[in-house]
Nucleic acid binder design. Structure first.
Lengths: 319, 319
DNA sequence: TTGAAAGCGCTAACAA
DNA sequence: TTGTTAGCGCTTTCAA
């Protein structure tokens, strides 16, 4: 049994001859090691827990795919759970992940609270935050620099000489939205433009439906916008369709810039200019960082900021 | 220890007084049972394996969400892996799921081969096929009736008096595509219409990009279509944009009907008429069926067919 | 109603 | 280089 274990795991030198015999026996009996027993004995399950708000969200699904691919590469398995971004569920789930003896975790959420940080620290679980960060910087994280991404997006319009630039974010309780809003505000201030509160819109979430309603109301009230910096592609499309509902269109009547470069942005017409987050990479890099943590490899940065870029398409292009 | 186990699992009667003492101790020590040890001892891990082609695909992500919600409800966890619909990987993954001692599996694939059926039977793992079925009907499955869904979609156009109805599917190796094609053909035959092979299109996959190319070529070659029955929303949008690229639009120049009722269908303009698969339910019902299998509950049907419906939107509506 | 004891199928020291 | 032994932290008989 011990020698079989050695052959299987390569944890010690085994004579070629015996190794061959063991492998023959494994073949013959179609033997497959029991990962649960192995996990109990070795205290490593080769399993990592992933908690995210909602897999059926395009962005999360793509991040997850990145996580999974790298996990597979390093022979880890993924236990997945949806939290619906509810803190109580998140904390509960961290506990069950602990019970499952996951080797580490990747955590995606909208907001990293002190309570969550504390729970991770108590659980002593290696964890990497993905697409968000811990404001206190105590937990390793992989994300983009949202403030400067929104700053760049706003500059993009300012350099075209556009005024009446709307910022259209998610809820004000959403830290990522607020970071982006700060970038927008900084760009305007640096350009000497006044901040107009009526040009700052917040949708109930990052989805299409709510954004569509908010945009419709905005236009209904007689407001006008020359350009929109939206915090997600879906939000941008919510604005687009509100404009269309009133007989307008983009880019003729409004220039639109989304966020995330989801598949939507090329499927829709006009194709959407967007700030590309390296969605897949966000997941892949998070998982890679986690493997470094788990394998005690040297780590340069515990806080990784991936580059973003603006992808120009027709929604901001006036023929 | 044994009594603690009894309190935790409710497997035997424990005096209220001792139960209270145990619970107090659990509280005090912040004790959390080790699920791995529990799994080894009881031979049940409360974990189910999910193998699907690609989580980052909208349809699968939504099915997965359905699976996960019901799994949570029954206190199961999900181990997730992507197979990219490659049979060799699928077979390999079934093996690793076995090693992980999952209690059961949900399997989503494009094609259920004999090899896969054999692997499941050898592994003796309870499994439910989701969104596909085993042609031999030996494995429980939850899906819709693709043939009659496409039949209904085609009838929908025939009843409008439409001719030149294109069928636009995925690859010919894709069983679901072929089932739908058969439904399309049956509807035409019953209506006494000739089958025109040049009106049957196959995209390289169910995604937008490839479909867009195939549609562009179709139109380039001077073919015309009055209506399109597409095998996925993305394929329908591929056709739509090919039409638009040539200055046309829907519903004016072509009536479009997609499949799946993904978020895309309402975000896009014109909003897309589509055959709604109960995507979330496909996952939820599969998982529920699996729990019945695992808990030895009575089962009426091992082969569940969920209802589909046509959701009419602007892409088939001529003012 | 509870405690004692065996054992789930491995890994990891320790000898040999 | 290999076999022996002792657990890993639970569940599940079996007695008491």
């Amino acid at each position: 049994m011990a020698t079989v274990s050695r052959v299987l795991n390569g944890t010690a030198v085994v004579k070629d001859e015996t190794k061959a015999k063991v492998q023959a026996a494994i073949e013959k009996l179609a033997y497959r090691p029991n990962a649960v027993a192995r996990g109990l004995a070795s205290k490593r399950t080769k399993t990592i827990g992933v908690i995210l708000p909602d897999v059926s969200d395009l962005f999360h699904a793509e991040v997850l795919r990145g996580i999974e691919d790298i996990a597979t590469m390093y022979q880890y398995h993924i236990i997945l759970t949806n939290s619906d971004a509810r803190e109580d569920r998140e904390i509960d789930l961290i506990g069950t992940m602990w019970e499952k003896q996951v080797d580490g975790m990747i955590f995606i959420s909208e907001k990293i609270t002190k309570e969550i940080v504390r729970t991770f620290e108590q659980a002593q679980l290696p964890v990497v935050l993905c697409a968000t960060d811990d404001p206190e910087g105590r937990i390793p994280s992989v994300a983009i620099d949202n403030e400067s991404a929104a700053y760049d997006a706003t500059r993009f319009f300012l350099e075209k000489g556009t005024s009446q630039i709307v910022f259209f974010g998610g809820p004000t309780t959403h830290p990522v939205t607020m970071e982006r809003r700060r970038g927008y505000e900084r760009a305007l201030q640096e350009a000497g433009k006044p901040l107009q509160n009526d040009l700052i819109l917040h949708a109930p979430d990052m989805k299409y439906e709510g954004a569509h309603g908010v945009a419709a109301e905005f236009l209904q009230n007689g407001h006008r916008a020359e350009a929109v910096v939206a915090a997600s592609d879906e939000i941008a499309l919510g604005f687009l369709n509100a404009v269309r509902d009133r007989g307008g269109n983009s880019p003729q009547d409004v220039l639109l810039l989304g966020f995330d470069n989801t598949r939507l942005s090329t499927i829709v017409r006009p194709e959407l200019t967007t700030v590309a987050q390296p969605t897949y990479d966000l997941g892949a890099v998070s998982m890679r960082l986690l493997t470094k943590l788990l394998l005690d490899e040297p780590i340069e940065d515990y806080t990784v900021r991936l580059p973003h870029s603006i992808i120009e398409r027709t929604s901001t292009h006036r023929g």
